[in-house]
């Protein structure tokens, strides 16, 4: 089935060469060697392909593929559009003083969200073309937040175990404590997760629910800044990807569930440090609301909104993701 789908995608895309990156239940992600319409050659592009499902009635299937492809693209556009609007507000306030429009500043200063650029759309076959924002980590893996954290965790664990054998430390509990302390000190991770949290906050303020927040759905892109010349520890900026399960909603419940899903995902992919990670993400999330309040000169309503979501999150933690027990 999967091979047939890949062949189908290749035949539909003409001369574009594809390399499969990952596959989900509904879509296959390819890395294409060419941009579908740019003049520049050899410009890699991400292609998300939703194959037709043979078990569905064809007319209905066409409709479903079309509708899902379109809705995912709309979400990507909405995030970009809202980010631009936020930025314009800020620029207006600063009396048309020109501000650096680099994407990083979209997030840090102005309440935007980093997401891939929408290049093209083919709703009839279920293709979405997006720009390729991946980087490779030091160990050659792709730069998702998950891989990045795993790499840091592993490096840390290795150096720790080395130290422990040297010092011949006996208490396992003590070593755990040390471990936790040092990771907490690792501000690189903290900054990254706070930055992720800020983006999530901004995204929720745009009334977009991601629906599938995991550390592998957050991609890191190297940011070349003049102040940062450290080759081994480059500055990374998180990008949100995969809006296949996203929706638009302003309900507190949906936002809280979104955060809960991320917490659970962190718990299972990074079991040792998930508590710290979640804490930092939520710190960033709160910061986003605070900064928005400051920008709008209305600190209180945003603080209230944040508190509402946070309270709901606590409730969700007790009862789980599903509010109703139906379905």
């Amino acid at each position: 089935m999967s091979v047939a789908n890949i062949e189908k995608a290749e035949s539909l895309l003409g001369d574009i060469k594809l390399k499969k990156i990952s596959q989900g239940a509904e879509a296959i992600i390819f890395l294409a060697n060419e941009h579908p319409y740019s003049n520049e050659r050899n410009c890699p592009t991400i292609v998300k392909y939703r194959p037709r499902k043979l078990y569905r009635y064809p007319v209905l299937d066409l409709q479903i593929v079309k509708q899902r492809t379109a809705s995912e693209s709309r979400i990507i556009f909405k995030l970009f559009q809202s980010s631009v609007i936020e930025f314009n507000k800020l620029e207006k306030k600063k009396n048309s003083e020109k501000i650096d429009r680099s994407l990083v500043n979209y997030v840090i200063n102005n309440g935007g969200v980093n997401c891939p650029k929408l290049i093209g759309l083919d709703v009839y076959n279920g293709f979405i073309f997006m720009d390729y924002i991946n980087d490779t980590l030091v160990n050659g893996e792709s730069s998702s937040l998950k891989n990045h954290l795993w790499l840091l965790e592993k490096t840390f664990a290795d150096s720790l175990s080395e130290k422990l054998t040297v010092h011949n430390c006996q208490s396992i509990v003590a070593s755990r404590e040390i471990e936790r302390e040092v990771v907490a000190l690792n501000s690189k991770i903290k900054d990254l997760l706070v930055l992720t949290g800020i983006q999530l906050g901004n995204m929720h303020m745009f009334d977009v629910i991601h629906g599938d927040l995991t550390s592998s759905n957050i991609i890191l892109k190297k940011y070349d800044s003049e102040n940062n010349n450290d080759e081994l520890q480059p500055l990374y900026i998180p990008y949100l990807i995969d809006f296949g399960l996203s929706s638009q909603s302003s309900l507190t419940e949906d936002k809280a569930v979104d955060l809960y899903v991320l917490e659970k995902a962190l718990e299972s992919t990074h079991p040792l440090f998930s508590k710290d990670y979640s804490k930092w993400v939520l710190e960033g999330y709160e910061l986003a609301y605070e900064m928005k309040g400051k920008r709008e000169n209305a600190a209180k309503p945003y603080r209230v909104k944040h508190r509402e979501i946070y309270k709901r999150l606590e409730a969700v933690r007790l009862r789980g993701r599903k509010r109703s027990m139906i379905g």
Partner: peptide
Amino acid sequence: SRLLVSVLQL
């Protein structure tokens, strides 16, 4: 340009 491309595609 990025904005217009998205508007057109959608």
